[in-house]
């Protein structure tokens, strides 16, 4: 060993010891925030790919389907479009709901698999005072942060394209985030329960997310589907979020009962999903 290596470390601080340094009640209160902070630091390393995926894909849909298919539909409906509005206005809230759900899903599935399987960094977090509840809630909050950013950017694009007008569409930010936050909580729990992740993400995307996107009244009203296929939309978070988004961005009619159903659907999914996720995280960390 060299002389340098044997020399006393020059920057050594006076050791105070963890018994004097650490405030456990504070960590119990703020643990999820520390996880969120770490996740945001991690996300910032991928900011360009995140932005490209989050904004690029719905933007292309809006241009190709909204403008392309839209001009075709508008010209064949004597300018009445669909649901009493031009096609772009009809389509945009559905794409908003879809992009929010897609983003939320990416932000809970990848980190959860990374944390439990690929890099096992959830176990590193759990070797500190952080608990499974902190890790689950912090990861979920980071998904909400990303969803919020995407949704706000997407709303701005919708205004730029003239798909929405006035102030009330701004409230659709809340419903889009709510829908995605609820679904993300549930899917985070499901991902944490997965033991063998081979094909999991591919299957999730192709067998669950893609059909939800296609069968949730995204491109046409759900009622125009045969009745035996409409149930997919009724179960789908994309449809519930789309209905609320359309209600807020233009005058898509929703009565009190429908509103109650849509909000209750998300409230139950959010509370149940979060409970399930926390429980699954705690169980898996203790194995």
């Amino acid at each position: 060993m060299s002389a340098t290596e044997n020399a006393t470390l020059k920057s050594e601080m006076v050791r105070r010891g963890s018994l004097h340094l650490i405030n456990v009640p504070r960590i119990k209160r703020w643990g999820a925030y520390y996880v969120l902070e770490a996740r945001i630091r991690n996300m910032s390393k991928w900011k360009f790919s995140i932005l490209a995926a989050s904004i690029g894909s719905p933007l292309f849909y809006l241009i190709s389907v909204g403008i392309g298919v839209g001009s075709f539909i508008n010209s064949h409906s004597a300018g009445r479009g669909i649901d009493g509005v031009k096609y772009m206005t009809f389509l945009a809230p559905a794409l908003l709901a879809q992009v929010a759900i897609q983003d939320g899903l990416s932000e809970v599935t990848f980190p959860t698999l990374q944390g439990f399987k690929w890099e096992k960094n959830f176990f590193a977090m759990n070797s500190t005072p952080l608990t499974g509840r902190h890790i689950a809630v912090g990861t979920w909050l980071s998904a909400i942060a990303r969803i919020s950013l995407t949704v706000v950017a997407y709303i701005a694009i919708m205004y730029t394209f003239g798909a929405i007008h006035g102030w009330s569409p701004l409230l659709a930010i809340f419903t889009a985030v709510l829908g995605s936050a609820a679904f993300s909580a549930l899917m985070m729990g499901a991902t944490a329960a997965i033991k063998n992740d081979d094909m999991f993400l591919t299957l999730l995307q192709r067998v669950a997310i893609m059909p939800l996107f296609l069968f949730s009244g995204t491109f046409y009203p759900l009622k125009s589907m045969p009745e035996f296929l409409q149930w997919i939309g009724w179960c789908s978070p994309v449809w519930h979020a789309t209905e609320l988004g359309r209600w807020l961005t233009y005058d898509h009619p929703l009565n009190g009962n429908s509103l109650l159903i849509h909000f209750s659907y998300f409230a139950v999914m959010l509370v149940g999903g979060l409970w399930f996720a926390i429980r699954t995280f705690e169980k898996r960390l203790a194995k």
Partner: peptide
């Protein structure tokens, strides 16, 4: 110090130390 290193591979050396310190509320 676990048997297998469970560092955050996408973060830098400094970031790994920083986020871990934050988990202790430091």
């Amino acid at each position: 110090v676990p048997q297998q290193d469970n560092l955050d591979a996408a973060l830098t050396v400094e970031d790994n130390l920083y986020i871990y310190g934050r988990y202790f509320g430091l």
